[in-house]
């Protein structure tokens, strides 16, 4: 029976608070760090009281890093642009290829269709390095190394299976009767795909796109191996802050804040849409 005593309620609240602190603390700490100089960050004992400064952000945006030892050129903004461009382009390509493929896999079972779908997923199982080293050699040969096109192509290893498998599930959840009803009403299969399947799987497609974007954004190893400085995304670019004269914690923190901002904003924006879409899907015709 559901009797909850006041003691139980209090304990529950404390437990929840602890969980929230545990997960939120690192993010909060990074955020605070980004407004501090290396000196205040490294003082012992650490303190939340400090004089906030924008020097870290300034350094990132202007591209000049002043340390006690020397001044250093960094191209963080270039990295940020690379991240955005690579992620958006990869997701767009993956959607274009993956959504129709997902529909085909969901609706038209043919001999070997399961195997093909599984093979695509299995790319996700292999350690990336296993794929990367031979690829790096091929890419050198055919001139794709250190090009955006080459990177976007490789990024399909991340995005395509995600889109394919998630969206396929959403297509399968649409009652075939709804599509049959549209066909019988006199519409072609393509019109049915466009007017029924796509809108109904919309939330799923958005969710898959978002996930693929985040995975692409957070990727480190592909770009590390296959791209040089001017094509590298922020994940790789952040390495530049580990300098010979020490680790620039303040700039790293500011870099992290700037680089998670787009994905966070996207997730927050899409959250409402996703929840709405999912509950719509739950109401069967």
């Amino acid at each position: 029976m559901e009797y909850t005593s006041p003691l139980e309620k209090t304990l529950r609240a404390i437990a929840l608070t602890l969980v929230v602190i545990f997960f939120m603390f690192p993010i909060l700490w990074i955020f605070l760090m980004s407004f501090q100089t290396n000196e205040t960050i490294l003082r012992v004992p650490p303190s939340v009281v400090f004089e906030p400064t924008l020097t870290n952000y300034q350094a990132l945006i202007t591209g000049k890093l002043e340390t006690s030892a020397a001044s250093l050129e960094i191209n963080f903004m270039r990295n940020l642009f690379n991240s955005v461009f690579l992620s958006v382009a990869s997701v767009a390509v993956a959607m274009l290829l993956g959504v129709p493929a997902a529909y085909a896999f969901a609706r038209h079972k043919f001999r070997g269709s399961e195997d093909i779908a599984f093979t695509l997923l299995s790319f996700r199982f292999a350690p990336p390095l296993l794929v990367l080293l031979p690829l790096a050699l091929y890419f050198q040969q055919i001139g794709l190394a250190d090009t955006y096109i080459g990177l976007i192509w490789v990024y399909q290893l991340i995005c395509l299976p995600l889109i394919l498998w998630i969206v396929r599930g959403y297509f399968e959840d649409i009652s075939p009767d709804i599509e049959y009803a549209y066909r019988i009403a006199g519409h072609s299969w393509f019109a049915t795909f466009r007017k029924i399947a796509l809108p109904l799987a919309g939330p799923g497609i958005a969710a898959a796109g978002l996930l693929a974007f985040i995975f692409a954004w957070n990727n480190f190893i592909f770009a590390l191996v296959l791209a040089s400085a001017d094509k590298q995304p922020v994940t790789v670019g952040a390495l530049a802050f580990i300098t010979a004269s020490g680790i620039q914690y303040g700039q790293i923190a500011a870099g992290i804040v700037l680089s998670i901002a787009p994905t966070l904003a996207l997730a927050l924006y899409a959250q409402k849409y996703l929840v709405e879409g999912l509950s719509l899907g739950a109401v069967k015709g």
Partner: peptide
């Protein structure tokens, strides 16, 4: 094809277009 047969059909689960 289904769309060219001149048929109207009602389904047990209604199969209305939810959107």
């Amino acid at each position: 094809e289904a769309e060219d047969r001149g048929i109207g059909m009602a389904f047990q689960n209604f199969a209305l277009f939810p959107h």
